[in-house]
Design a binder for these strands. Sequence first.
DNA 1: GTCTTAAATTTGCAAATTACAAGTAATGAT
DNA 2: ATCATTACTTGTAATTTGCAAATTTAAGAC
Lengths: 149, 149
Amino acid sequence: MENVRNMFQLLSRNFGLLNEQCCDNCCGQDISLVQSHILYEINRQHHPSMQEIAGALGMDITTFSRQVKTLVDKGLVKKTPHPADNRINILSLTPEGLGIENNINVTVNAQLNGVLSTMSEFERETVIRSIKLLNDSMQKSASCCIPPK
Amino acid sequence: MENVRNMFQLLSRNFGLLNEQCCDNCCGQDISLVQSHILYEINRQHHPSMQEIAGALGMDITTFSRQVKTLVDKGLVKKTPHPADNRINILSLTPEGLGIENNINVTVNAQLNGVLSTMSEFERETVIRSIKLLNDSMQKSASCCIPPK
DNA sequence: GTCTTAAATTTGCAAATTACAAGTAATGAT
DNA sequence: ATCATTACTTGTAATTTGCAAATTTAAGAC
């Protein structure tokens, strides 16, 4: 049996490094890695509440609350009270926040495409399909990859 | 063109969650995620110095120094002065440290194999081969995944 | 051998990040 | 109206982080 963990450990480290470098370099602002994950997830979801984003990222809600606060202070995120329930805050990116998120997105994609460009067309497609497959399986698996609640 | 980043962002998050959960659950000790990366890398390399591990992980050397100190205090890591150069400390796992590293390894592997078990034999092999390929490409790529130094 | 320079690692410190517990405010149930 | 619950925010204290400055040891110049 393969040692699957080795591969994932390396992959996650490599991607972590890439991601962090991109955060530092591609946008004028200082965006930490967690903050980039928050921007990413707000952009991805549809009118998400605080809990939804914190839950998706597996972050403690109090830590999340503060991080959102600093993103709001930076002018990248907006909190809008839910019309039907004032306890709930709907999160969205400001135009500036969206700009930065896109910026990061473009930069990371460029880096990744650089990496993939060393492969043959066939390999590249296989790799992409594999990762999709893997993500699907992980989402389905109840035993892991689910934030602790 | 695919949005490659999306997939990687999800993958790295999923694996991060899995990894963190494993750190919490599988060994009696409290091991943080960074500490598990340190244990992993010390185990992987051959008589590594502090700088070599810190470099491989892309960690600031001062942060690393302190983390190693706590691992030494926990009795999981040993520092041995290099015989030919006393400035250098060679890092190694104590038997206890090795035990924990193995423990994490087994646990993470079990989780990952659980995820992979939902796939067909062919898919599973493809996925594993793809990740290997990807890691190789990332290591080769000078533009990213290289600690800032 | 002494002196200067460089390398490997460690501390001082101050800022950022984290999480538990306790708080506030809004909603829902009865 | 009252009580429990939900969504979120603070208080506070511990941990983590990284820059600058020290420390220790080694290597090279003379």
